[in-house]
Simulated scan of single mutants.
Amino acid sequence: MSDEAAPLPVLLVTGFLGAGKTTLIGRMLDDPAFAGSALLVNEVGEIGIDQELLVRSGSPPPQLLANGCVCCVMNDDLGLALRDLDLRRRDGSIPPFARVIVETTGVADPAPILARFIADGWIQRHFVLSAVITLVDGVLGAETLRSQPEAASQAAHADAILISKADLADVDAIDRLRGLLSATAPHATILVAGSEEAAVGRLLEPFRLLGLRALPQDHGRGHHHGHAHDHALVTTASWRFDDVLPWPVIAGALDDVVTAHRGRLMRIKGLLRVRDADRPVVIDAVQDLFHPPRLLDRWPSDDRSSRIVMISRDTSSEDAMRALRHTLAPMN
């Protein structure tokens, strides 16, 4: 891309662990208005799950920024990834794209990311941060905002906030959450969505507008650019295995692990190859709540191995993964 070309818009999608970022981005990528979007997925840990679920034909393959966090000031992965996307777009090695969507890890503080867009001259010439979209869990959001400084920062820096899973919470709780978010981010547009496809489609309309043009904003004004968290407090454990196990065995082992570490695991997610199923199974848990497992239509790549990732504030993820492997490995 020449220096004279208009900077491409970047949408930053953030939100605490399990708020629904990947679900929203998947629906955005299926929307014709977002055709031709490049996607950068940031995950904490060595194995990425989310980018496998966001492969779309006709768009550049999702690029994973693994085992780190783009919000770390000393981590230049985001800048390098944007440079790599620009280079490969110009040499034709990936399909052309009209915008970039960045999905941050759930424990990312957006402030250093916004600072990078302001301070990096090359990024300023080639990209412009169009909007920060923050997902907030309608069931767990209020408590998460009070107990997790990253979640509060994600809300405070948002241009638009989408309260997800509203159909799982009562109306009064959603109203209280809206009030809390309004106080935290008085400048942000706050939208509410349940799980219904039609409702989410309607709520995507403002995001379509945000994604179709660059909206230069002074994201630095009124924002604190310090780090709101210490990544040493967040640990991840991952396991990849090739053996095919029965779903009841896997489900029982996961239930035992979550029960034994109740209140200490922040997130569990996985993509599993299960006996007696010809399609991959997605598992997803937020804190102590497991979402119903779902079948994908197809494997997103040629990799048919099962993979599980656990995230915790302390070493619970490592302990839990060790227990899970101890239970399942002898069955391989």
Rank of each mutant, 00 (worst) to 15 (best):
R221I: 14
A199F: 01
R298L: 09
R240Q: 13
M266L: 15
G220T: 08
D297R: 03
H291A: 13
L203S: 02
D303Q: 07
L271E: 01
A232G: 12
H227R: 09
K269L: 06
I268E: 04
T235L: 11
G226E: 11
L272H: 04
V200K: 14
Q287V: 13
D256L: 12
V286C: 05
K269V: 04
V309T: 10
D297W: 00
S312E: 11
G201N: 12
L295K: 03
W239D: 14
P300T: 11
V282N: 11
D302T: 12
V309M: 15
A228E: 00
R262F: 01
Q217T: 12
K269G: 11
L203C: 09
R279E: 13
H219E: 08
I250S: 05
R307N: 05
D278F: 04
R262W: 02
R208C: 10
F290C: 13
A198G: 14
D288W: 10
G226S: 12
Q217L: 04
R273E: 07
R275G: 06
D297K: 03
R313M: 14
R307M: 06
G211C: 09
V274K: 01
R202D: 15
L233E: 06
L204T: 10
M310D: 04
L209I: 15
L212C: 13
T236L: 09
V249S: 04
V309S: 15
A232K: 12
P206W: 08
I283M: 05
P206K: 11
R275E: 15
W299F: 14
A199T: 13
I250P: 15
I308V: 15
R279N: 10
A253R: 04
V200I: 15
D230P: 00
V258F: 13
L254M: 15
L233V: 00
V258N: 10
